[in-house]
Structure formats: structure tokens, C-alpha cells
Simulated scan of single mutants.
Amino acid sequence: MAKVKFVPTEAAKESYEGAYLVTGFMGFGFVGALSTEYLVEKLDMVKVGFFITKYTPDQVSYSEKYSLELPFELYYHEKSNLLVLLNRWIPHEVEKFRYAQFVVKWAKKNGVKAIYGLGGLDSSFKEEPSETLRWVKTSYYNGPLPQAKPMVGGLKVIGPLAHLLIASEIEKFPMLALLPYCESASRQDPRASAIGITELAKLIKLEVDVSDLFAKAENMEKEMEKLKKILEMSVSKKDSYYI
């Protein structure tokens, strides 16, 4: 078996000339995974294939709409000529870069115009309270850029998204990563995902409604506030026993 390969579905096209490829991973704030999953569902995308690696993660999920869901699946939206690589898991440690390089080479071979990555950035690195995101690109990306500053000097992109940037630079391929600020590394941040998708939509002229993500963020914030008050009351009652 090849170390990494692409397996098309019956809905696959022979070429994706001029398409944009969007992807992300389960990183900071789960922005990449949440954003790509949202795009697939909101745009009602069609599954056109999946990537298989030598050490494919031993996990699958199931949905009535898409049936069996594999770790690394590729979806396509014909109207917008958009591809979304949905990474439901992170590649095995020994093949992270091999996976990234294969994806970039596949994109080049199939006429993809550019890769856009989505990830999260710790909000503690904000220089101004009004900032919403930063970005980083390869030397070969000459497309439109967000009206935001690039990545703060000295900070590093880490994980699978970094491997994708490295592979794109080596293969002389255009890639731009959008990194909206997140409040937490270990908790989903739908607001950051909404911000990332909104910026992406501006750059590639994509029509997508992100109101569901903002609503989810507001509900999560309300629940967190309730939990905070409950904990404060609990501590207050406990202290009263010692008056």
C-alpha cells in the first residue's frame, strides 16, 4: 500500500481547475475542524473522495446524510468551485508531513488555485483589543489579503497546519492561513470560526451564512456565565459556615 493515497468517490471530477482548497485541523479553539465541518454542512457539499495513510486513525463516525465518515475526507461545492478537506482526526505523528506534502502535490496536480488554512491563535497575543485575526502565507501566495496584520514576529504556527505551510512553500504553491483569536485552547470557539469563515468568504467571494456560529457562541457564553455564578455562590455559601 502507498504511504498516502487519494481514493475518489463516484461523485469525483477529473479536474478541479481553478478551485480553492480550504482545510484545518483540531488545533487551538478547534477553529480548523469546526470551520471546515460548518462549511461542508452549510453549503451542502458533496463528498468526492478521501485520503488514506499508512497509519490511518482507527476511528470513524456516522451520519444519515453522509453515511460512514472517515478521518480525512474531501468535499466539493460546484457552484463556488470550492474544495474542503475535512480532517476529523490528526495524522499519525510519523506521517504528518508526508500527509501534508501529499495533499499539496494532489492540489497542484488537480489544478487547485490556492490552499486556505484555518486555525486558532491565543487571544493573549493581541496588540489591540479590536484585533480579530492574524495571517501567514507562503512566498508564492499573491492573492488578496485580509485587512489585518500578519502573524506577530517571533510567534510560531505549530502542528499539522504548519506542516501544510511548509509543504506548500517547498512545492512553490500558494497558501494563506487565517488565524482568528481564540479565548481557550481546549474549548470550541465558534465565534473565532465565524470570524475566520467571514474573512475567507471575502477573499474568495464565497456566499455563506455564519449566523449559526455566532448564535452558538452566544449560547456558550451564557452557559459559561451561569456556571461562573453557580460556582461563586457555592464558594460563598461554603465560606459562610466559618463566620
Rank of each mutant, 00 (worst) to 15 (best):
L200S: 13
A19W: 09
I195K: 01
F50E: 14
P71S: 10
L21R: 05
E169M: 08
L133N: 03
W106C: 04
W106Q: 06
L165N: 06
V46L: 06
K79R: 13
L68D: 13
V152H: 09
K13G: 07
V136D: 09
S124D: 06
I158E: 15
A215W: 01
N110Q: 05
V46A: 13
M45G: 12
K3H: 14
S67C: 01
K137D: 07
F173D: 09
E131T: 04
L43Y: 03
M224V: 00
Y76V: 01
E183S: 00
P8C: 09
F72T: 01
P180A: 00
L165W: 00
V48F: 05
L164M: 15
V60Q: 11
K5N: 13
H163V: 07
S211Q: 10
T132I: 15
A215Y: 04
K105Q: 05
L39T: 09
L206N: 04
V94H: 07
M233N: 15
K96D: 10
K229R: 06
E69T: 07
L206H: 10
G143P: 05
L85I: 07
P57N: 05
V210P: 02
E17Y: 00
S168H: 10
T53F: 13
P160L: 02
I166G: 07
E127G: 09
A167W: 13
M45E: 12
S186A: 03
K229L: 14
